[in-house]
Design a protein around this nucleic acid. Sequence first.
RNA 1: GGGUCGUUAGCUCAGUCGGUAGAGCAGUAGCCUUUUAAGCUAUUGGCCGCAGGUUCGAUUCCUGCACGACCCA
Length: 498
Amino acid sequence: MEDRNKLIQRRIEKLNELKKQGIEPYNNRFKADSLSLDLHKNYGSLSAEQLIDDNVCTSVSGRIMAYRSFGKAGFMKIKDFTSQIQIYAEKNSLSDEDFRLYKKLDIGDIIGVEGCLFKTKTGELTVKAKKIVLLTKSIRPLPEKWHGLQDKELRYRQRYVDLIVNDEVKNTMMKRAEIINAVREFMVINRFVEVETPMMHKLVGGATAKPFVTHHNALDIDLYLRIAPELYLKRLVVGGMERVFEINRNFRNEGMDLKHNPEFTMMEFYIAYKRYTFLLDYTENLFEYIFNKLNMANTKTVFGEYEIDFSKPWKRLDFFEGLKTVGGLDDDTINDKEKAFNLALELEKSVKKDMSREKILAELFDALVEPKLINPTFVVGYPVEISPLARRSNDNPDITERFELFVAGMEIANGFSELNDPFDQKNRFLKQLEDREKGDEEASMYDADYIRALEYGLPPTAGEGIGIDRLVMLLTNNDSIRDVILFPLMKEKEEEEV
RNA sequence: GGGUCGUUAGCUCAGUCGGUAGAGCAGUAGCCUUUUAAGCUAUUGGCCGCAGGUUCGAUUCCUGCACGACCCA
């Protein structure tokens, strides 16, 4: 233990003094019968006189968040997972031993209190302590009571402290849980089955991204943390599980910024005998369901500087139309790879000479169109070239039956009619393999078993992935993905003690 | 990967045109039996991120590094 910090030293001394007096600093035998929020709900509206008449006695436990002491009495605020409640401790109502303990308590300590409810002069519901039990001595001081913990680095690294002092973190995470529950409920109502497919893959596939590599010792093989569950979920559809979904982590070995964390949560689902057009309506309905479940009065939310209107139906925008009407490109630039390439260079996009025209256009779309898609917009009509797992459109074999959903300039979802033609899929894998050999580390690998599955027959199927973290960002008005992930990845920092 | 900014007490922040630093909260001691960021009095606490350079002297100026925030790729 470091000896430089006097505050910690002082608290350790206190802990030892308490032990000497026979007080256990880590006592786990206190039984609380009430939660703070329930006390406020059940008794908060009673008058001071009524409370005294009713003589409501209770026991609560929680962490001391405020401590105001004057001589022979004082107030504390203790916090449990539901709320906070004030404790009044006075000499006359406590045993000498408990009063001595009370005088030694620190902010941050966790205690149990038995006593009866009353209202103070200012009308605050309070427990007048008859008995105080120390449950956990805290030997590290909490951040300042008024400003809390501001340092973002510390907040992410020591999320436990952040959660203690910054209520909005817990609120966001609770809302995240509600959102995921709502999503799951909606899927189950629609007769989807939740499944878990492998996180460790022998081949990279299902998306365009660089993977993390790990090693299995006993088998002596490299494995990849999955970049997407797609190919496994579609194998399940082949097997007759015609409606499946998975809510789980994907891992992509890429940069980190406001919208990207190396591990992130996706909901992917597949439904047989439907086309991508079904998914558009289904996604709108899913959002409507979430809004209702979260008691969000209308279908509008504030996100940063924007007010976003989720009311149905959402805008549909053709990929190439978008390049023109939103991105301001002319037909010349769209049709002439050279011109598109030069424009992309001007915009400082990382394009290469040997990239296909469609890939360059996708970069231009990313730079010029996406940031302008604020209200929910389904972009449709993506080129085959950049959609290796999507079915071709019957009207135009260069275009797929695919869409992406954008909100507030962020990609939220990606879905399509699945490519179920094994011959076409085989060729697309071979094309990916070529790209990979040319040095494209994001291209997928050839998955022979997946082709075999398609040869058994994948029914016509529609599938979609929804980025859960970004969805939570939208609905909780957080502009950083780190604020909706409990433990975002941070570089290791040297610790000051062992 | 590039650019801008940041890193000072446990926390939130000042500050030093270069002479080794302050406040509030927290802590400690005392007074105080209805407080709400309780109050009053006194007081402890600092490798001023790390390493190097310039200088008589660096927390301050310069360079590099680490970590972070934001912007760009």
